[in-house]
Structures are given as structure tokens and as C-alpha cells.
Design a binder for these strands. Structure first.
Lengths: 306, 306
DNA sequence: ATGAAATTTCAGAAAATCTGAATATTCTGT
DNA sequence: ACAGAATATTCAGATTTTCTGAAATTTCAT
């Protein structure tokens, strides 16, 4: 036949305790069960494993078998632990790709929460624009993507997470800051609307937009930070997703724009279609939900949880 | 419950072959048995292991489990192989201590034969006089000893292997060389009988012996080789065990002495009493028997196998 | 859509393992 | 050396686990 793990375990415990009785207690068996298992093991191996009738001392063969048994049992136990940890999402890797806005505003909180629950999961976060998120997903480099809805969703599944309305960012002392309802392009006539290269997914109406706009495009900032600095300096206003604008900032104001003027972008979760997720990824999504709820609560109306 | 090796093996083989049917063939089971085992494993682990219904592709969890399962199975299989090898005497160490005469005349042949059968067993041979052989055995340094019967056999078991008669070594042109039957001290009157320090177990009758001897003790050689050289040079004769004297040597002759004059020493196997032997040691003893028979056949009457 | 192949389900059969009582052995203290 | 205590083994029956074979289901390819 073949050796069984059970038999090796019974042997190892008996050798350790030096007694069938105590081994039986540890293994939650009766002494007779352990005795029979041991007998069977010796029959399988050939030479005796214990020196006398009492199980106090091992034969040389017994020592050799014990060493091997220990190694095999140890490896098996660690494998079982690792398997359970993996299955529970408590081990492994979480590899995801996200757009800067998500990376900056959603993920920090989400990842902190995740890490608190699963400290042993490696986290690998890629920063990329929406197009690259899709690419990485299709290439298999990452397992999860967070980005706005992809134009070509071949092979990818998109699950909306939230709608991030675009809005006008202006100085707090700007007359526009006083407006409550959504504003449109009409309100911006004659204003300098700065373009910025945040991401291609932010639909700046600079090209092919209505001709009644202000002179948007005349000033272009490379980064969001730069654009905000210029707004603060009074150079003009700019249009950004709500999430991108720091929440508590006395100098700046955020005014929601109507959907026609600035269609809100939908940010969501990208996954490969028809492939199941790793346990860590599943657990991450579990922690992501409450996280979005909290965010919605903090940001109010302009942030719409989906 | 707990994971079973069987389940992991069924899973690994199924994942490897990508088919329950083929896995069942390899495992010598019916497909239904494998299917049930897999189902049970998935129930135990939680998340599914295979992507679709067909077993072609693994889920991320499946990949993690497969890696762990492989590691555990591999370790177990190697442990089983090692255990069987140990039990068969084909692995491990053979540590023995032997007196120079055994080391020189018996062990080379025995160890060559043993090594041919068990090339993977490490051999550690200690050279020591009879007293030290016993010491090493008691200290646990060695497992087997080959020496003459110990004076104090406390804790040691002695099993006679052969009787090595003492005999007179003289020049081939010595008148004594012509004698056929066993000779006694009477024949040596007036001769120079050289003492030598071969080993304390060689009973030289220099102290407390009969007074009718020759002037033995007047010349003492440190080694057997030296003693033989002196005999060859005509300085005198000496007394040695048969085994110690090179067999084919035209210059020297060996004449057996009667038991009363020179009691033959009994060389045997020393082991610790009440302790079983390692499998390699057992196998060595098995090869030792035939080896002694061959030696007896070659040396003839003066070498008595016991 | 249809047939072939693969997988799963199910009930009963077979095998392995366990228990509890009786028995045998070894150890310990006198 | 002996009796008693502790430990280990044996055995038969019970329990659990695992296997098989037939039937049903699903999937894949034509």
C-alpha cells in the first residue's frame, strides 16, 4: 500500500509524547486506534519503529522515519494554513491599476481599511490613465482596474462605482462661488477657463465644444495642483471632477455644472470578463463598498454612489 | 474538517491533466470518485478551484491551492521514498569501529560488497584498539564494533565471528618453517621471540608465562610491519594472528601454534545490548556473513569461522 | 440541432477506521 | 519476588469514509 499522513501523524505524536495514551488524547482518538495505526505503519515500513514494547525510545529506523515524518507533516500543515489563508483572502497579492483621481481620493482610505483586515496581503497598485488600466487588465498584469468606463470593453466587465460630477473651480471670492444650482457654459462667457492635462478621461470641452465659451485653452496647466494654484492666483477658473478638488479649502469654491455642459464621468470597476477573482480581490471589493458609502456621506450631492 | 492528502492529490492531478477522466485513470479511480473528492475539497476550502464546469482552467484561488498542494505532495512523496530507503537499509549511515586487523583484512572486502549493494549509505569507519571499540560503542559514537571479546562486557553484546589462531612467523628458510603440526613453546627454546605492540588483545606470553621460553621481550617492535621486517632480517621470530600476516610472501612462513601455548583470540561483533540496529547496519551484517565464508575458504584451517 | 464526450449525482457496496471491552504486558513499590 | 498500577494490544462490531456503476446532466463540436 502506501503510507498515510494519519499514520505518520500518529507516529510522530506518539514518539514525541512517548506514550500511546497521551498521543491518543492529543489526536482525539482512543489508545486502541492509535495502537492499530502504529502497528499498521510498522507493518508497512518493515523494521520496528520503537525499541521495546513501551513507546519510550525509538529504534534507529524510528529516528529516521520520525525525521522524515516531521518534515512531511510540517510541510502539509503549512500548506493547509496557506490554502485557508488564501481562500479567506488573507494571503496572496492584490494587484490593481487605477486612475490618479481614484488613487488619490478613493484608494488611500480603501487600502488602509483593507490592510487593517488583511495585513499579510501584498498590495501592488499601478497608476495609469483609463486606457492603460484597460490595457494592463487585458495583458493580465493587474487583476482589478478602477477607471472611467472604457470605450472598447471587449473582454472586460465594467461595474459602475460612482458618478463624479464635473464642476467649476473658482476663487471663494468669485461671484460664481455664490451660485447654488448647477451652472452651464453660459455663466462662463468671457472667463478664462484653464485646460489641464489631468487625464484624457476628463472631458474638457475645449475641442469641438460650443463657440460661446470663454477662452479656454489659452492657459494650460500640466497638473491639477498647478491648475488650482493658478485659480487661487486669480488667473482664471477651471473645470475638474469633484473628487479631484480638495474638500476643505477656504480659498477655493466648487460649483457643480449641469450635465449638459459637463457630462459627469462614471468611474467603475474593471475586471476581465468570465474570470473569477482571487480571494484578496474579492475581499478588497467587500471593503470598497462601505468605503464608497462613507465617501458619499462626506462629499454630499455631487458625488453619486452607484 | 481537515484537508486530506488524497484530496490534494486528486486536485493536483486533475489540474495537471485538465480532466477528471484522465485524472481518474492516473489515480486508478472512477471519474465519479475523483469528482466527489474534488467537490468535497471545494466545499472544504470555500471558493471554487476551477474556472468553468470543465476542469480546464484554474481560478486564482485554484492556482494558489495548486502551488501549495504540489509542495506538500512533493514533500510527502520524498519523505515516503526516504523512509522506504531507510527501512531497506539503502539510505543512512553505517558507523563502525574496528581493530586494525579487521580493518585491514576483513573490512575492505566486506565494505566493497556492501557499497555495491547500497551505494547511497554513508560509511564511517573508525580505527581503534579493542578497548576503544568498546568505549566508542558505549559512548554511542559508533553502532557496530569488530574486535576481540571485551573483558568487561557490561551493556555490550558480543557475537563471535571468527577465531584467529596465533602462529609463529619465521623466515622461510628457518627449520621451524618445515614443521606442519601446531608447535608449542618447547620448540622456541633459545630463540629470540620479538614482542610487538600490535594490540593489547594479542596475548603475548611475555609476562607470567612459562620460564622455558626464549628471551622474548628482549626485542620489541612497535608495529607489525617492523616486526615482520626484523623477522625477515633474521633477528628472530615473532608471534602473530594468522590474519595479520600477509598471505603470499615467499620470505616468511607461518606455523600454527597449539592452543595451550598461544590461545587463539576470538574476533567478533560488538553491539549495544537491547538496542536494535539501524537498517544499514543490519544489511551490513548480512553481507558480512558470506564475506567471512569466502575468507575462510581462502585462508584454510588456521582461520575458523564461528 | 444533434450526437459524443465529459462530468455529476445518487444509492448501494466496499474499505478503512474507530470504539469499548477484554486481555496481555510492563513497570513500580514493597 | 510479588502485587498492583499503568500502559499497550487484540478483537469484534459499529461507524465513517470512500468507492463503484448506472443514470442523469451538462458541455462541446459538428
Amino acid at each position: 500500500m502506501s503510507l498515510s499522513l494519519n499514520a505518520l501523524r500518529a507516529f510522530a505524536v506518539t514518539a514525541d509524547t512517548g506514550s500511546v495514551t497521551r498521543a491518543a488524547e492529543i489526536l482525539h482518538r482512543t489508545p486502541s486506534a492509535v495502537s492499530m495505526t502504529l502497528k499498521q505503519l510498522e507493518a508497512e515500513i518493515g523494521p520496528p519503529l520503537f525499541e521495546g514494547e513501551r513507546k519510550g525510545t525509538l529504534t534507529p529506523t524510528g529516528h529516521a522515519v520520525l525525521a522524515e515524518a516531521r518534515a512531511a507533516l510540517d510541510r502539509f500543515d503549512r500548506a493547509e494554513a496557506a490554502i485557508r489563508a488564501h481562500a479567506a483572502g488573507a494571503a496572496g497579492r492584490l494587484v490593481l491599476s487605477a486612475t490618479p483621481s481614484a488613487t488619490t481620493h478613493l484608494l488611500p482610505e480603501a487600502l488602509v481599511a483593507f490592510r487593517a483586515r488583511f495585513p499579510d496581503v501584498e498590495i501592488d497598485l499601478h497608476d495609469a490613465d483609463s486606457a492603460r488600466v484597460a490595457e494592463e487588465l487585458l495583458a493580465g498584469t493587474v487583476e482589478l482596474g478602477i477607471a472611467s468606463a472604457p470605450t472598447t470593453a471587449q473582454g472586460l466587465a465594467f461595474q459602475p462605482l460612482y458618478r463624479d460630477a464635473l464642476g467649476l473651480v473658482c476663487r471663494a471670492d468669485d461671484p460664481l462661488a455664490a451660485m447654488t444650482g448647477p451652472i452651464g457654459w453660459a455663466h462662463l462667457t468671457g472667463r478664462t477657463v484653464m485646460a489641464h492635462a489631468l487625464s484624457p478621461s476628463t472631458p474638457l470641452p475645449s475641442a469641438g465644444g460650443a463657440t460661446s465659451h470663454g477662452d479656454e485653452g489659452a492657459v494650460t496647466a500640466r497638473t491639477v495642483t498647478a491648475a488650482l494654484a493658478l485659480v487661487r492666483a486669480g488667473l482664471g477658473v477651471t473645470i475638474l471632477p469633484r473628487l479631484t478638488v480638495p474638500g476643505a479649502d477656504g480659498d477655493l469654491a466648487f460649483v457643480e455644472m449641469d450635465g449638459a455642459s459637463a457630462p459627469p464621468r462614471t468611474v467603475g470597476l474593471l475586471t476581465r470578463k468570465g474570470e473569477s477573482l482571487s480571494a484578496p480581490a474579492r475581499m478588497f471589493l467587500e471593503t470598497l463598498g462601505p468605503c464608497l458609502d462613507r465617501l458619499a456621506g462626506r462629499l454630499g450631492g455631487t458625488f453619486e454612489r452607484l
